[in-house]
């Protein structure tokens, strides 16, 4: 079954002094992949501008926007329409569990996936302690273990806004046992990489009105690579595997690779910027 969504990303930036020159990079367009198809998008801005699309380091399509005149306030609205196919994340091809776990420690697998096996400042646990994690049963598929990790994480950390910020590293969120979707994703990614499972950070939209955590803002989750199979999306903050309620925008090593808006500004003096982000999503089934 195909689900149709319309997404809206809105940002409002105000500056104390007019910005003479600026380039904004917006990473907010749903990607097209096996599960979802970007049908159309519209870019609107409060100020005359040039805009174009570009490809980032991980192959995601970003919208680049350069205002033509100095501005002290600029607003963007990116509307997209996207189709998402129904999926059952548990429906996977059969692979002998032992063979799957063996792949995890194989040389070629490590080389091939080095980018998403390497920790970053936001994902690494300096003590590398894994003793508190659920026990691993290598007679069962890798996915079973990841599901157990996700539920363990969802039990241990409470979803609390304001306890962490955009720059909080995983080990800090784990220590305070509080966080938002970004923190859940970073902790899970950090654990997976320690175990040897490639994991990447994903930003996206989440279907609204279904009581999901994190649906009022851009959402974040993790994607983990099942050896011999493919990537599976895992949302620890909702204790769910990713299905047709999720619309992926981009992936990267951590949050920094997926920030929805990055601005490079030249301004005469001190700058104060305020961002207001809202996400509207409606499913027409």
């Amino acid at each position: 079954m195909i689900h149709h969504y319309n997404t809206v990303y809105h940002a409002d930036n105000s500056y104390e002094l007019p910005v003479r020159q600026a380039v904004y990079q917006l990473l907010v367009l749903p990607e097209s992949n096996g599960q979802q198809q970007l049908l159309d998008f519209k870019v609107e801005s409060s100020s005359p501008n040039e805009w174009w699309t570009a490809t980032n380091a991980f192959g995601a399509q970003c919208i680049m926007l350069a205002p033509q005149f100095p501005v002290d306030n600029i607003q963007f609205e990116i509307k997209s329409s996207v189709n998402v196919e129904s999926i059952n994340p548990f429906d996977r091809p059969f692979i002998l569990p032992q063979a799957q776990w063996e792949l995890v420690s194989s040389h070629e697998f490590k080389v091939e996936n080095a980018t998403f096996l390497s920790q970053t400042d936001l994902t690494h646990f300096p003590d590398r302690d894994m003793s508190h994690l659920p026990e691993r049963d290598e007679t069962k598929p890798v996915l079973d273990y990841l599901v157990a990790l996700k539920s363990f994480l969802a039990r241990e950390i409470s979803y609390v806004q304001g306890a962490t910020d955009a720059h909080t590293p995983a080990d800090m969120a784990w220590q305070v046992k509080k966080g938002v979707c970004q923190d859940f994703a970073h902790v899970l990614i950090g654990w997976c990489r320690m175990i040897g499972i490639p994991a990447r950070y994903v930003s996206g939209y989440l279907s609204q009105g279904q009581n999901f955590r994190g649906d009022a803002q851009l959402h974040a989750w993790a994607e983990c690579l099942l050896p011999g199979d493919g990537w599976v999306g895992i949302d620890a903050s909702n204790d769910l595997l990713v299905d047709q309620h999720y619309i992926k925008i981009a992936h990267g090593r951590d949050y920094y690779d997926c920030s929805p808006m990055t601005g490079v500004l030249i301004s005469g003096g001190k700058q104060v910027s305020l961002h207001r982000v809202s996400v509207d999503m409606h499913a027409n089934q």
């Binding site: 570009a54 680049m64 490079v264």
Partner: peptide
């Protein structure tokens, strides 16, 4: 220069 890598990638 902002966007240089994207131009390079293209």
């Amino acid at each position: 220069t902002a966007g240089l890598m994207q131009a390079y990638r293209a």
